[in-house]
Design a protein around this nucleic acid. Sequence first.
DNA 1: CCAAAAGTGTTCCGACTACACCCATGT
DNA 2: ACATGGGTGTAGTCGGAACACTTTTGG
Lengths: 225, 225
Amino acid sequence: MKHVVQKKYSHAVIATDVVIFTVYEEQLKVLLIKMKKKPFVGMWAIPGGLVHGKESVDEAAQRHLIEKTGVKDVYLEQLYTFGHVDRDPFGRVVSVAYFALIPNAGLKLKTTSEYDDVAWFSVAHLPKLAYDHTEILETAIQRLKAKLGYSTISYSLLPKEFTLSQLQHIYEVILGDALDKRNFRKKILSLGLLKRLGKKRSGGASRPAELYTFLKRSSLIASVL
Amino acid sequence: MKHVVQKKYSHAVIATDVVIFTVYEEQLKVLLIKMKKKPFVGMWAIPGGLVHGKESVDEAAQRHLIEKTGVKDVYLEQLYTFGHVDRDPFGRVVSVAYFALIPNAGLKLKTTSEYDDVAWFSVAHLPKLAYDHTEILETAIQRLKAKLGYSTISYSLLPKEFTLSQLQHIYEVILGDALDKRNFRKKILSLGLLKRLGKKRSGGASRPAELYTFLKRSSLIASVL
DNA sequence: CCAAAAGTGTTCCGACTACACCCATGT
DNA sequence: ACATGGGTGTAGTCGGAACACTTTTGG
């Protein structure tokens, strides 16, 4: 983290922030890093950093995502650009914010082993964030909720094989209220995007659930609209 | 236009482009300017320019909008940020694109009197555009079409008082197909956003149409989401 | 045999679609 | 009187919402 801004810029510079979401423990979680810089010491922030000269803004977002999570090939979408003059006390920084969705599979370990100042927070219990990152995060949550309704981004939060209950849990956790099981299954299956596989037994003592997979593993990096 | 980029930048700089729409002559129109710079001489481009040090990106977009149209208090929304490395041959320029909607009322005159290299183009018959502006414009059109369905941005393309037929024409022109008159009126009126006024006589020889106005003249500058 | 989650259909209601004729004005 | 756009209602269909019991496994 030596690359971070330490002086005033005469002209605006471009940075990117990546809001990284996952769902586990029945909650929507976001990855935050602990700040070490002067005015924000001890505060948490959305991971991000400057856009280099030889990379596109998309590539910069991807790079920051990989640096923090080690995960590649995940859903990454541009969110919004935050360009207020005083959003960064170090100088004029315009930030192109992205949001990413990653499956929960064992990710906790990877990140926390490499950075001890990185942690998952439930979006229900957020600390105060540095910069305008609270606004960025709220925008991301709004967008995520909205897109659940008319897109298939929920795919990106699940492993390749999953049960309908797992899928439904994703929706319930993010939207914050319960859905009718029968209606949910009818609707999802009527879309014709899922394929049945064999059976699995979950950890617990109950009837094994049918496993499904998505037919179209389409492009994992998508653009808005 | 002496402020435009003439040299390579060592670091990325931030610009903004504003896609300005209006509807008249039964067509969706976009405002374009004619380029004078080297590789694009004679080509048309979306108006825009650099973001200054003391203004937010939103303010820069507004400024460029006012410079070209002279119109204030119109709908202006951030569209998307275009950040490919090679999108500008002069150097590294990241562009935050916006789109604006303005009522058709007599606007032709204002713009063409001040700039002879500015013109309205029907989006159905576009020239080849400079930079990646074709992509920007397509993104804007997509977004505009999508938002017609779940928002009230159509307001911004009409004068304060208007007829239901005028409103319907906006939808038909932008979406590109005909709507059922009775169904359209039922739906629009059921939203409870319109107020009836008196009557008007249109230019032509036909029954005068009822005039309506929008109840909530809410904030005219809105943000995405 | 009990606990725990999986799986499965039907009814009701509201929203959207399709569709055709009379009305008020200007020329 | 006629041409032009303005204005109005109904029937049919489709999709979404509400709702409860049986099944399969592990302990």
